[in-house]
Write a protein that binds this DNA or RNA. Structure first.
Length: 467
RNA sequence: GGCCCCAUCGUCUAGUGGCCUAGGACAUCACCCUCUCAAGGUGGAGGCACGGGUUCGAAUCCCGUUGGGGCUGCCA
């Protein structure tokens, strides 16, 4: 008697997101509760947008959160034969047709109609031969309604007339999300599709495809409420700070993050909030998940984390803090080792990695500013250069050298000084580029900007003399 | 614009027709404790979006309005 089969299907196009983590958690809870299988599938069909580093990040984040998977990771990029077979089936059933309209043409016609954007079915009856340069589109029925039952939302339906002829295979032959997604769910015998609410509009298309491919009984669906930013918009990788690993680096405990995430859209009831994983597994009910979006509130998450921290056995707390501290400076350890005369000196060499704002040594700073007329120009150039450089020591070195040249200071030794002062607060310390690599892009650039502001004549605070 | 979804304190939520004078947590304010800060304790302020129904009775059911969100890609 096999249990349910669920999956988390992230795409490696960005850092692993707290929203994805919440979806993964709910899938995982469901699988564990029903002795089912939790499957990891990497949706990397869009080769142009994939970043290998993110594939690693997905797995690291999942493991860190304790969400172990039973199968996978499967990579869609390695399953292209499956999609090709499905496409062949769709073609021979005349469920899809080839279309050679460019996106520009589609948009232009939509503008001309003055109607809504979207594809107008232009090539529906042109009977073009499928092939390179031609996208394959699904022939959506003109009439009728596609409906499904959602474990969270109840009955959901939409008229087929509102669904345009969506693409299933790109003109370069790559499968599109909706196709790969449905084919894989069928192939992997997924019984419950538990995913974000943003996929609700995809579900009718998925079902149309599913039926056209003759896959039989539909999986069950549960669309989870979206995690929102403070502005009530869907949490976005671009706008918001959302990477799970950022929170790890800030010192959140995985069990605390997990607990907080569980509370978004679900509640164990009876006024309880802190609960163990076992309790969650025992009590979680998809049917009890709310359907309204939830704002991701970092302050609340902090208080949950604080509660977990306090509950730790003191010696365990020291251990946990220790390993966090250690992870922060360990990468520059060997570099510090060469320079420290006593262990006591280690601290002042790495303190900048821990402080939210570096302690600026007033004398070093004043001397640095005095000696380098292009101080400000170098900081500006560096901040700009660091914005989209590969965040590795070697690349940072070239970027800094280039920034120096742009500021009229071709010697790296001189060009690095203002950056070092702004970022570490001192004129001496471990090698700069490895230090920056460890500090991270965001904090580095923030500090350079702060250094830049420090250079500007102080803005008068109190009443102006004589005013 | 079209389609879809949603609606309890600022935020996360409890609530599934009478137990609701709507409970808890975060945040916030006051006080207590206290060498500081936390933690803890006590108390305060703060919400059922609005309008119609249904019902003896509605935060809970129905309809509408308003508001918010998602989707509308040869992204996933």
């Amino acid at each position: 008697m096999p249990g349910p089969r669920v999956r988390i299907a992230p795409s490696p196009t960005g850092y692993f997101h707290v929203g994805t983590a919440r979806t993964a958690l709910f899938n995982w809870l469901y699988a564990r509760q029903h002795a089912g299988s939790f499957i990891l599938r990497i949706e990397d069909t869009d080769r142009a947008r994939n970043v290998a580093e993110h594939t690693e990040g997905i797995q690291r984040s999942l493991r860190w959160l304790g969400l172990d998977w039973d199968e996978g990771p499967w990579f869609q990029s390695e399953r292209t034969d499956l999609y090709a077979d499905a496409v062949a089936k769709l073609v021979s059933a005349d469920a899809v047709y080839a279309c050679d309209c460019t996106p520009e043409q589609v948009a232009a016609r939509a503008r001309q109609r003055g109607g809504p954007p979207g594809y107008d079915g232009h090539c529906r009856d042109r009977r073009l031969e499928p092939g390179p340069g031609r996208i394959l589109r699904f022939r959506v029925p003109d009439g009728g309604v596609t409906a499904f039952y959602d474990l969270v939302r109840g009955e959901v339906s939409s008229p087929n007339g509102a669904i345009e002829d969506f693409g299933v295979r790109k003109s370069n032959g790559e499968p599109l999300f909706i196709l790969a997604n449905a084919v894989d769910d069928a192939d992997m015998a997924i019984s419950h599709v538990i995913r974000g609410e943003d996929h609700v509009p995809n579900t009718p298309k998925y079902l149309l495809l599913w039926d056209a491919l003759g896959y039989g009984e539909h999986p069950s669906f549960a669309h989870l409420p979206l995690l929102l930013s403070e502005s009530r918009q869907k949490l976005s990788k671009r706008r918001d700070k959302v990477a799970v690993e950022d929170y790890r680096d800030e010192g959140y405990l995985p069990e605390a993050l997990r607990n907080y995430l569980a509370l978004l859209g679900w509640s164990p009831g009876r006024d309880r909030e802190i609960l163990t994983l076992d309790e969650m597994v025992a009590e979680f009910r998809l049917e009890d998940v709310k359907s309204a979006g939830a704002i991701f509130d970092e302050r609340k998450m902090q208080s949950v984390n604080a509660e977990y921290l306090r509950a730790l056995d003191p010696s365990l707390f020291v251990d946990r803090a220790q390993s966090w501290l250690r992870a922060r400076w360990e990468p520059v350890g060997p570099l510090v080792q060469e320079r420290a005369r006593t262990l006591g000196e280690v601290f002042s060499m790495v303190d900048f990695l821990f402080l939210s704002h570096p302690t600026i040594d007033a004398e070093d700073w004043a001397r640095g500013v005095r000696r380098q007329p292009a101080f400000a120009a170098i900081l500006d150039a560096a901040a700009e250069a660091y914005t989209d450089v590969d965040w590795h020591a070697e690349a940072l070195k070239s970027a800094t050298a280039a920034a120096g040249e742009r500021a009229g200071v071709p010697q790296l030794a001189k060009a690095q000084a203002p950056v070092r002062l702004a970022v570490t607060g001192r004129s001496v310390g471990p090698p700069l580029f490895e230090s920056l690599q460890q500090l991270g892009r965001q904090r580095t650039i923030e500090r350079i900007r702060a250094g830049r502001r420090r250079l500007d004549p102080a803005t008068p605070k109190g009443p102006q003399p004589g005013a």
